[in-house]
Amino acid sequence: MEKKDVASEINEMVELMQTLGERDVLPSSKMEIVMNDISKEEYYTFDLGNPWYTGQFVSTIKNIAVKINDHNVDPEKVYFTLRGQRIQAETANTFFELWWGMGELAQLQIKKDSIDQYIQKTDNKLEITMGMRSAMSYGLPGNIIKYQFKNTMEVI
């Protein structure tokens, strides 16, 4: 058998990782309104599974961009919560001691008053773009896999 060229092999690996990662990540179409016990602020909250093929340190999350009904959500209003530990999603890449288990559900939380005007009761189009760094080099471009998660969400 002929040896594959490097570019096509890398493309195959990227596609494979994306296929797996985008499969089980948004397990529910429900978006819940949750009040934070400490800040007393309300957040739209939904589950987000770890897309990587193993667990990963949270620091490997390069970025999380959320769009609801075609509106780009202000990144400062997006929070990532893992086992009750809540951080601003933008700062996730600094948490190199916080482990996100294989397939483990985290919660993404969006400050309610920042997107209220774009939300309806049902049929909310949710789109998430998430970059994740491999903590071991697979020779991927920039060592990053870019995932896209989509679902239609109902507010409960």
Binding site: S59, T60, K62, F96, R133, M136
Partner: peptide
């Protein structure tokens, strides 16, 4: 297990 060398950003 893995010896991860890019775990920090």
């Amino acid at each position: 297990c893995y010896l991860l060398d890019f775990l920090r950003t």
